[in-house]
């Protein structure tokens, strides 16, 4: 099965700055793909190239296995990072206009908008002018307009910026729901917590280069450093065999003790447990996987230093 979206060696140079250097990503159907990277890495440029807003210098963008065309673009739901609406137009009128530009009939637009406005509890805004709304409120309207025509591919550039935590959660739920209903979703973000919760795949771009990509679970496995956390009850600290096990952090609270232990290549988790069990009552035992945040910082710093 062809990927929903594929970029092959996409490159772009602005006047003197290399914005993208042979970036290849692959987005599976009905998955959520997170595009990460520090500011100015080239995320938005990539998104704009996919949307054919910016022309690429080299490379290819394939949609379901075929080179992307202007007609395909009309079926993509795209929420740009810098978003605007006509300030003097009324919210409802504007939503209907944008929906009709996407090809919905007036009746369809009204029907779908009613559902979404109720879902987001903003029905009372219908006759307000956009300039009367706060920035976050405007973004809700824009999100609705983006997903209204049920596009198969959704691209959100920084969808959570400007939202309060409650609305971020509402948005996350809707994004997950959209995926479950069959949509493929790409979003760029700095919000790492949302990446962990939502993404099936991620790609990390730094300085115009793709430095990491893959399934989020695989990546975490790849970056794990064999650290386990043991919470136990015992009057005294654990004594472990060296050099197989190395305690890197100890805590003691509420009568429970916690130790973070790195296991060296020669040993494994079972041996660690064998070591622990005679000494203490184990409350919990788990492997600590690196957070996306940790991986992000580690990799970005590494690639920047290599330069």
């Amino acid at each position: 099965m062809a990927a929903a979206l594929q970029t092959i060696n996409v490159s772009k140079t602005f006047t003197h700055v290399k914005a993208l250097d042979a970036v290849s990503i692959e987005v599976e159907k009905q998955s959520i793909f997170g595009l990460l990277g520090p500011n100015g890495a080239g995320k938005t440029t990539l998104i704009r190239i996919i949307n054919m807003i910016t022309a690429m210098d080299e490379g290819q963008v394939l949609l379901n296995g075929h080179p992307v065309t202007q007609d395909d673009i009309r079926h993509i739901g795209y929420l740009p990072e810098e978003r605007g609406l006509y300030k003097k137009m009324k919210v409802g009128e504007q939503a209907v206009y944008l929906a009709r530009l996407k090809g919905l009939s007036k009746q369809e637009a009204l029907k779908h908008l009613k559902v979404w406005f109720e879902k987001f509890e903003i029905t009372s805004w219908w006759n307000k002018k956009v300039e009367e709304l706060s920035k976050g409120m405007q973004q809700k309207v824009q999100f609705i307009v983006t997903v209204l025509h049920n596009p198969k591919l959704l691209i959100f550039d920084e969808p959570f910026s400007g939202f309060d935590p409650i609305n971020v959660n509402i948005l996350k739920e809707e994004i997950l729901k959209l995926r479950d209903e069959g949509a493929t979703i790409i979003f760029s973000t700095h919000n790492m917590a949302s990446v962990e919760e939502l993404c099936d795949h991620i790609a990390l771009i730094n300085n115009s280069k793709l430095i990491l990509s893959g399934e989020i679970h695989d990546i975490k496995q790849r970056f794990k450093s064999n650290i386990f956390e043991v919470v136990y009850r015992s009057p005294k600290d654990l004594l472990l065999d060296k050099p197989a096990f190395e305690v890197i952090e100890r805590q003691n609270k509420n009568g429970e003790r916690l130790a973070k232990i790195r296991i060296n290549e020669t040993a494994n988790a079972n041996e660690l447990l064998k070591n622990v069990l005679p000494q203490a009552e184990v409350v919990s035992f788990r492997e600590i996987l690196p957070s996306v945040n940790d991986i992000f910082i580690q990799e970005v710093e590494k690639s920047s230093n290599n330069k």
């Binding site: 009309r74 993509i76 605007g84 006509y86 983006t146």
Partner: peptide, 15 residues
């Protein structure tokens, strides 16, 4: 106006 408030990006994806 369209360029400054960036609505043009949304519209260009439709027309």
């Amino acid at each position: 106006e369209e360029k400054q408030n960036r609505i043009v990006e949304v519209i260009i994806s439709s027309v």
